[in-house]
Design a protein around this nucleic acid. Sequence first.
DNA 1: ACAAAGCCGACAAATCTTGTCGGCTTTATC
DNA 2: GATAAAGCCGACAAGATTTGTCGGCTTTGT
Lengths: 137, 137
Amino acid sequence: MKISTKTQYGLKAIIYLAGNSKKGCFCSIKQIAESEGISPDYLEKIISKLEKAGILKAQKGAKGGYSLAMPAKKIKLGELVNVLEGENYFVQCLGGDKKSCSKCKGCLAQNFWQKFQEKLDNFLNSVSLEDLIKNKF
Amino acid sequence: MKISTKTQYGLKAIIYLAGNSKKGCFCSIKQIAESEGISPDYLEKIISKLEKAGILKAQKGAKGGYSLAMPAKKIKLGELVNVLEGENYFVQCLGGDKKSCSKCKGCLAQNFWQKFQEKLDNFLNSVSLEDLIKNKF
DNA sequence: ACAAAGCCGACAAATCTTGTCGGCTTTATC
DNA sequence: GATAAAGCCGACAAGATTTGTCGGCTTTGT
């Protein structure tokens, strides 16, 4: 139960983009990776996911790179976490994915984790990238 | 970023104990493991941690086993998670454990994860084992 | 044409979680 | 006191996941 570096890197990347890709300007992977001290090859995979999810916008070819796909105000951190950690990132029934665990349906423990996940989601979806940058959370 | 099975097993175990070890009676690892479908050897390690942390009480020898070390009302779920996932279970600076990351001090991302952790802790520490059993959370 | 940069899939290394095992100690009971 | 049930403990192994690397392809501005 830790924040994966994937998600931490992803957050650092969008913070960087929020600050550096103004006015239709794009930042390259290399640039972000160097600034944040991340392996460029790995960062590419992370950023690629964010682009497919519609959070970032890509510009191919020379002078290309990435920028936010929308104003920082509209990017909720919950989205970022969902994309990088997976939809049901926190709670997962012990019975496995395919076979729904009959024992767990309505069991006390599972109910609790479910509630826990909700609390998490609520918080993450209440904070936008802009809020984060302005330290308003 | 998932609840580890370790923690899930731990929770199931203390729920079981809350229901089955009344009146100075102890439940053996074997008993709990069978009831919850957990590997006894693995469960032992988990429960042992909880005992060392003072959440459970052990009775050695024949007819021995475990019981809650205090009333369910006094056991906060935050404790359980802290013990099984580790103190700083959520936020961990990218710079590594030993060398404190100077880059990260006061960085936006880190501040945010810190706040996130606080929210988590607040919730987990607001729910007791008793609350959980009575579905009051 | 060229070079910069994104795109993509395969693979490799490292780490962490999960689980197993064997042997020891403690204690209730006969 | 012998026995068996049960906790205690450390080492190790298997499996899963995360993290990272690489090579080659495509796209596009100059």
